[in-house]
């Protein structure tokens, strides 16, 4: 092993020990326009609850896509669970994503399947035995308050219920990290708070939670770490922070 490789290995071991997410001077440019991310360095520890806030075009979605390995950085390195995502090959991506739970603003449920099937699908992809799936799905549905609706079509559920199904699906494989991209964007205040409380519970059990949001009220009330982005750069990173408006 060359000296360069030894240093790289030591660096990765450090990252693995210290945090679950590490962006090292990451930039991402698309074919035209200014970079979506410009030299972003961010470190998130195990078990943290972090809000990523910022206006449209600030780079939040690009950040989530980089963490999901949907995109690769133009420069810099993205480490998740100690893995340098640039080094993951296409066929290794599914296995990597099984460490993550993902929740989207538009829920992204499989519309032709019922609640049970949507949640069970996440276990099917990791080839969990049927007997375990039958045991695990009702438990997780019970955790998100949908025990009685496992047979319902997802299209017949309210927005809040659909987001709970998405949460159950994201959590059933016990991910180390939960990424939530505007999870309350399509919900009324009551349902939004219910979802945020669920996320807080999940975080309390040790899962690292990263929430991208526009909701000033939620961010200010929850007193968590807040990373504020503007035009592709991090302009503030505060423990127990608050939402910084554009005009601030």
């Amino acid at each position: 092993m060359s000296r360069k490789d030894v240093i790289a290995r030591q660096r990765e071991e450090f990252i693995e020990d210290e945090g679950v997410i590490f962006l090292d001077n990451v930039s991402k440019s698309y074919t035209s326009g200014s970079p979506a991310l410009d030299g972003v360095t961010l470190h998130i520890d195990r078990g943290e609850f972090v809000f990523i806030v910022g206006d449209s075009g600030s780079g939040k979605s690009t950040l989530i896509k980089l963490l999901l390995r949907e995109l690769t950085a133009t420069s810099g390195a993205v480490y998740v669970m100690g893995q340098n995502l640039a080094r993951i090959r296409h066929r290794q991506i599914p296995k990597f994503r099984r460490n993550l739970g993902v929740v989207f603003q538009d829920f992204r449920l499989l519309k032709d399947r019922n609640v049970y099937e949507n949640v069970a699908f996440a276990q099917r992809v990791i080839e969990t035995p049927m007997s375990e799936i039958r045991r695990n799905v009702p438990l997780i549905l019970s955790d998100v308050g949908l025990a009685g609706k496992y047979k319902s079509k997802t299209t017949s559920l309210s927005g809040g219920e659909q987001q709970r199904v998405a949460l159950a699906r994201a959590l059933i494989n016990n991910p180390s990290i939960l990424l939530a991209d505007e999870p309350t964007g399509n919900l009324d205040p009551k349902n939004s708070w219910e979802i945020m409380n669920l996320l807080e519970d999940i975080n309390a059990r040790g899962t690292t939670v990263v929430v991208v949001t526009h909701s000033k009220e939620i961010v200010n009330a929850m007193k968590k770490r807040v990373v504020t982005m503007r035009k592709g750069v991090i302009i503030s990173d505060e423990e127990e922070g608050s939402y910084i408006d554009d005009e601030d």
Partner: peptide
């Protein structure tokens, strides 16, 4: 297309 994307986000292999 959306259904395929969802499966991929969950961690399904290309084969699945």
């Amino acid at each position: 297309k959306e259904e395929i994307e969802i499966m991929k986000y969950i961690g399904a292999t290309d084969f699945m």
